[in-house]
Write a protein that binds this DNA or RNA. Structure first.
Length: 825
RNA sequence: GCGAGAGUGGCGGAACUGGUAGACGCGCUGGAUUUAGGAUCCAGUGAUGAUUCAUCGUGGGGGUUCGAGUCCCCCCUCUCGCACCA
């Protein structure tokens, strides 16, 4: 039974129950004729409950899903929980509760809130990362990568967060601080870790960015992160040694200007090259650099520091010996950890040379102009002081010098990426154990696939990094095992894998979540993947989204899947702020969706969030504005109720009176202006949804409602269309209106209305009339009227005539259906 | 510093390839109705001037054009990403 007045709670409870009972949101994955996979970034189920940022993201994705469903697709819109990881673990530690107890509670609360928001989620395919049925396959993936040489173990300087008590990846380091702990300096530690060879795919990850249909902002962030540069490796001879000092440079054209070399303090040759006289100083410098906090070391404002090694290298282009220094402005991780310094043409080198009075030799002269004073000239120009290359354009020499040196065997072209391999190991408890066994005799042995999952034991003391070692190391029943190869004593890898691995493949699991014998079902995967539409926050542009792409490429090469890009479309939503400022716990201005749903209902909250601003740019949540959406829904509901009850009353008499003085539109044929508004709105809302212009789509719905309320009469097509157009935004109310219209079952069974192109244009248009480019009035003429007609109409206009009085018309500019401009003097 | 984007009423924000700036909503003003209401309905709402008229108005300054929020140049501010990556 339809509900008379707009009572959000009653309506929303009613339809949520209906959806659940009738499984309206579940998709027949195998039988689907026209699959469309909508994905939203699954949340970490925090104890605080669903964040309004999640609601914002999910609603934007849900609109796509509902719209595609109304367009006739079989839409799959799954949800799950990313409940492993440091986030959950730290919280569990803080409140002194075991995560295995904590997580189910949080998840239950999240499910409740997600249902409350009326998302079209198919809960029958939920995944939960800490579920052994899930992480069994996370471990299996690790084994696949290992098998194909993409997982390796290495001792490398890693980022250690003293608060997390674990290593974190490069991507999780922000300005030398831990992403999770602002203000906490990341330390550098040498540790043996598992890495995934993401760098192997650097070029493909970069190349595919040219064609994948993703938000530009996200693709740009990825390009930046991959950081491809082209240059050359050049060997500088070391007098009296066999070895050469190899540097990487993007500017081989400036080789003649190299007046010194700089090694990173950690460079392996430092110890060998340092002279006796300099040894003490160099040692002290290295010690100081080692202790230096990461954020300070990378502060560009800081004065350059460094120490002379007491050794020389020979510049291969002119055989000149140049001094070798060490300085912390050279990074051991990048290139070869050593540079040739060209102070005339590199700002950093210039600063360093100025600091230590090293020679500065310009080798490129800017074309048509003088080189800048007091700084390096980094542009191109004409070669000078460069022996045989003098007079050539510097750009030509980029390749030429490399080529010539390559012929002598002392240089080679080289492409360098900023992207690093993905450090997978975490010295923590709350994650999937890395499925590897360390045997004294056999070395590193993978756990046989049939032994998966390696279950995470439920241990009481899961604190990280206590004196007894890592949590899983302390727990002997887990740690001590036997070697699968030789049967001898062995121990398990005591690390767990990075939380980002859990979320790097979850979309592959959703359709196949019922299969316990394979990670993903081949047929379902072929049918449903790649994901048609992925919507999420851009904060994951270089983390999650890079890792998923890497995994897909690896899987494709292994023959496990048939595509290499996981998401056909990805759209990044903007940031939601509140009252002009950032929303955060510290500001105490975080929006709790429950409160707003309590007060106004989920449809109002959903719609308001989408109305705030352009979805891809974010919006400013102001409490004062939400009432506008609420009023809209109330007016809408009232209109339907009044028109439809009136019609029911009129129906027996068949002939509905053309409402005498009654404000309620009658039932009958639409007048033409109303019909035009309707058809224009049908077109606009569809187009706007496809381009994520939700705010303007909602504005169009409001305009349509205003028009319908003022119309003399309405018909079924108008009311049905508006209900369907509303359905992506306010799904509960749309269902209620649909029922009021006499339909049985969900509005999702309806089809998106077709607009009639002929009815999207008026037959009369208003033409702006300008005199000398200034607006002086307007005239109404028939659509597509000729210039002559418009001109005559305009000249007949008295205010136009006034402005043209005494003037001669020199020129007339006519833009059909828009304006006419008289140029006169 | 580099890269990307953005500056429009009191506020959030509209404006397709240059063509009537300010859609839609909030707020505000006036009116109607109601015992009352953070209710509903109607009208108005960029600024200035005396009205139905005019002038000025899209961060600032120049320019192109019959016509510029939109295109070009310079500057200012803000947001985001990267940041001693050689």
């Amino acid at each position: 039974m339809p509900i008379k007045s707009y009572d959000a709670h009653q309506i929303e409870a009613k339809w949520q129950q209906y959806w659940q009972v009738h499984r309206v949101h579940e998709t027949d994955l195998r039988g689907a004729a026209d699959p469309y996979y909508v994905l939203m970034m699954f949340p970490y189920p925090s104890a605080e409950g669903l964040h309004v940022g999640n609601v914002y993201a999910f609603t934007g994705a849900d609109i796509q899903g509902r719209y595609q469903r109304l367009r006739g697709h079989d839409v799959f819109e799954p949800m799950g929980f990313d409940a492993f990881g440091i986030h959950s673990e730290n919280f569990a530690l803080r409140i002194n509760t075991h995560p295995m107890k904590l997580i189910p509670r949080n998840v239950e609360n999240f499910r409740r809130q997600l249902r409350m928001m009326g998302l079209m989620l198919d809960w029958s395919h939920e995944v939960l990362t800490p579920d052994p049925d899930y992480y069994k396959w996370t471990q299996w993936i690790f084994l696949q990568l290992y098998k194909h040489g993409l997982a390796y173990r290495a001792t490398a300087p890693v980022n250690w967060c003293p608060k997390c008590h674990t290593v974190i990846s490069n991507e999780q380091v922000v300005d030398g601080e831990c992403e999770r702990h602002p203000g906490t300096e990341v330390e550098r530690r040498e540790m043996e870790q598992w890495f995934f060879r993401t760098t192997k795919y650097a070029q493909r990850l970069l190349d595919n960015l040219d064609w994948i249909d993703w938000s530009d902002i996200t693709r740009n962030a990825q390009r930046n992160w991959i950081g491809r540069s082209e240059g050359a490796e050049v060997d500088f001879r070391l007098p009296g040694r066999d070895a050469a000092l190899r540097v990487y440079t993007t500017r081989p054209d400036t080789l003649y200007g190299a007046t010194y070399m700089v090694l990173a303090p950690e460079h392996p040759l430092v110890g060998e090259l340092v002279s006796e006289e300099q040894r003490a100083q160099v040692g002290a410098y290295i010690e100081r650099a080692r202790k230096m906090r990461a954020a300070d070391r990378t502060d560009e404002e800081r004065e350059k520091t460094g120490v002379y090694l007491g050794a020389e290298a020979i510049n291969p282009v002119n055989d000149q010996p140049i001094p070798i220094w060490i300085s912390d402005y050279v990074l051991i991780e990048y290139g070869t950890g050593a540079i040739m310094a060209v102070p005339a043409h590199d700002q950093r080198d210039y600063q360093f040379a100025s600091q230590f009075d090293l020679p500065i030799i310009p080798v490129i002269r800017p074309t048509g102009g003088d080189p800048p004073e007091g700084e390096a000239y980094v542009g191109e120009g004409v070669m000078i002081n460069s022996g045989p290359y003098d007079g050539l354009p510097s750009q030509d020499c980029l390749r030429k010098i490399t080529h010539d040196l390559a012929a002598q065997g002392v240089a080679q072209p080289r492409v360098q990426y900023r992207l690093r391999d993905w450090c997978i190991s975490r010295q923590r408890y709350w994650g999937p154990p890395i499925p590897m066994i360390h045997c004294e005799k056999c070395g590193i042995v993978p756990v046989p696939a049939e032994d998966l999952p390696v279950r995470l034991p439920e241990i009481e003391d899961f604190r990280p990094d206590t004196p007894g070692g890592k949590p899983l190391e302390r727990y002997k029943p887990f740690y001590e095992t036997t070697c699968p190869t030789c049967g001898g004593p062995a121990h398990r890898d005591a690390d767990v894998s990075d939380n980002f691995l859990d979320s790097a493949w979850y979309f592959l699991r959703y359709p196949s979540s019922h299969r316990d014998d394979v990670a993903w079902d081949a047929e379902l995967t072929r049918k449903w993947l790649p994901v048609d539409m992925y919507v999420g926050g851009n904060e994951h542009a270089v983390l999650h989204l890079m890792y998923t792409r890497f995994l897909c490429m690896a899987f494709k090469d292994m023959g496990l899947i048939e595509f290499e890009e996981p998401f056909k479309k990805f759209r990044a939503h903007g940031l939601l702020i509140r009252e002009g400022g950032k929303m955060s716990k510290t500001h105490g201005n975080v929006i709790n969706p429950d409160e707003y749903v309590d007060e106004h209902g989920a449809d109002t909250l959903r719609m308001y969030l989408m109305f705030l601003g352009p979805y891809t740019e974010g919006g400013d949540f102001r409490d004062s504005g939400i009432i506008g959406i609420r009023r809209f829904l109330e007016r809408l509901h009232r209109l339907y109720w009044e028109v439809l009850t009136k019609r029911a009353a009129d129906a027996p008499g068949a002939e509905p009176a053309a409402s005498g003085g009654d404000a309620v539109p009658a039932w009958g044929a639409l007048d033409r202006p109303t019909a035009i508004k309707l058809h224009q709105t049908i077109r606009k809302v569809g187009e706007d949804i496809e381009s994520f212009g939700y705010n303007t789509a909602i504005a169009a719905l409001m305009e349509l409602l205003n028009t319908l309320r003022a119309a003399p009469a309405l018909d079924a097509f108008a009311l049905e269309s508006l209900a369907i157009l509303l359905a992506p935004f306010a799904p509960h109310e749309a269902e209620e209106l649909w029922e009021m219209l006499g339909h049985e079952g969900s509005i999702l069974a309806a089809r998106w209305p077709q607009y009639d192109p002929a009815l999207t244009v008026t037959e009369e248009v208003e033409i702006a009339v300008q005199v000398m480019g200034r607006l002086r009035g307007s005239v109404h003429v028939a659509r597509d009227a000729s210039e002559q007609v418009v001109r005559d109409a305009a000249l007949a206009h008295e205010s136009i005539a006034k402005h043209l009085a005494g003037k001669q018309i020199r020129r007339v500019i006519h833009v059909p259906n828009r304006l006419i401009n008289f140029v006169a003097n």
